[in-house]
Design a protein around this nucleic acid. Structure first.
Lengths: 263, 263
DNA sequence: TCAAAAGTGTTAACGCTACACCCATGT
DNA sequence: ACATGGGTGTAGCGTTAACACTTTTGA
């Protein structure tokens, strides 16, 4: 019942809007949304509400009057329900065989029984302008985002059955080349960290040096010497020391820090 | 006379093909082609054969059945007459106001007298499908290329009056955001060098360490200690020592090296 | 007073820089 | 023999890594 509604949504609501809405054709934006929790680097991944276990990266298209960075922000806001997200464009994926036709047809085949029950025939579906629009070869701009996982309230799109955080070591198989895109995003993140000092975007506003070290160790999958790490981070001169953080534990309270706005 | 022909070419030959040819709409590729000569880092820049001193980056579009890397290769081959060029995709430029309408209209205004002499009226021009195609907002994928300047035979496109190497410190003003793209390409190059070890692509097959040092000093605009530089480069372990290079000069002959194919 | 974790200081190891030295080449 | 530029070795310096020591906190 629920599923039937969603298939209909895929066919009529969404697809029949695509070619009418003022999107740039054949270009999409794919987002790798990183969050951090409990010594795990996580990625936010929706699962489509169709038979076949289709996992995808949160994606979208670019409006004609929209900067690509704005488009990425919009797509991210829709999925996370927060604004002003930190993001980096990291690569364009443009293989000639990069189209969703295969994936869409597989999805269609696996969901034929639902489609049959609807007022749209398989032929109608295939002749649909939006089917054509959507199954063309696509160039995809990859963005990665860093968010404070506690501020995110994951939002289902009309096509989703679920949207969840996955540890980067326990990722499901994603459609098309989305696993490769994710891998490239992770490499780009690792490369950027010390230069862009962007890792703090994974943390809440106030944090301890130990929190930062935890993230570094998770992202780079290695240990750091506590005392040297402290010095390294503070020597970046981008943190502002605040009050102490009293946890109730029987040990010295660490200082809290905040990322300095270097304007 | 010559110029008149070229304006016609712009309007009829080129534009009237664009919407027919099977290109991906609203996406272009802009190439920053770096060469090295005489202690100068140079970029290959065409000048359009119209009144108004329009300098551009070598650009092109992507065929429907073509990888974006292939498209960049094709565009580069057309301009340099060599194949298998080293290139790196470095950034996508996608501001919403990124269209060539302003530039095309300026070009048109400055060349009205020629247009009048042709069998195409200004209205016809403006109603041309390809005018519409070409003046839409474009997303541009930036590539930089590294070539052995001695192997390049610069090729004029049908729109060009000239195509020449410019020292990066004596660049003309380019149309649209092409100066910004070039600047970003240079930054990407500097960042990539030690990781990708790609600088050797600016040299002929065989070269001395002194040649490499010259390029480093030019690109990074600083001096390096000769003996330490030698060690640093050799410790990359990517060079193969060949025969000595006898120049006829009254000094010890340096070794020639070749970039190892690390397969 | 003790355990646990934070913060600071000190020494050792390493890599990079500066430069002395020797080598090859042609006049 | 000598001037010129190439190639190698080494001592000094600064940076990073390892770890000892002190401080704070609550039980």
């Amino acid at each position: 019942m629920e599923k039937q509604f969603k298939v209909k949504a895929l066919v009529s609501t969404r697809w029949s809007n695509l070619s009418q809405q003022n999107f740039i054709p054949q270009v999409s934006i794919d987002c790798v949304i990183f969050g951090y929790q409990n010594r795990q680097l996580k990625v936010l991944i929706p699962k489509l509400s169709y038979s076949g276990n289709f996992y995808v990266l949160p994606s979208g298209f670019i409006l004609q009057d929209e900067d690509i960075d704005q488009a990425a922000q919009r797509i991210l806001s829709e999925r996370t329900s927060i604004d002003g997200i930190y993001l980096e464009q990291f690569q364009v994926f443009g293989k000639a065989n990069r189209n969703s036709k295969e994936f869409i047809n597989l999805l269609k085949d696996l969901n034929l029984e639902y489609i049959k029950q609807m007022d749209i025939s398989a032929e109608e579906l295939e002749n649909n302008k939006d089917y054509d629009w959507f199954t063309k070869r696509f160039i995809s701009i990859g963005y990665y985002a860093l968010v404070d996982i506690n501020r995110v309230i994951p939002q289902l799109s009309i096509l989703d059955e679920s949207i969840e955080w996955y540890d980067i070591h326990e990722l499901p198989t994603l459609v098309m080349d989305h696993n490769e895109i994710l891998e490239k995003a992770l490499k780009a993140l690792r490369k950027d960290i010390d230069e862009k000092l962007n890792i703090f975007n994974l943390l809440p506003e106030k944090f301890t040096i130990a929190d930062v070290q935890e993230i570094y160790e998770t992202v780079f999958e290695r240990k750091y010497d506590r005392t040297n790490f402290q010095k390294k981070i503070l020597e970046f001169n981008v943190l502002e020391r605040l009050e102490k953080k009293f946890t109730g534990a029987a040990n010295k309270a660490p200082y809290l820090y905040r990322f300095k706005d270097r304007t």
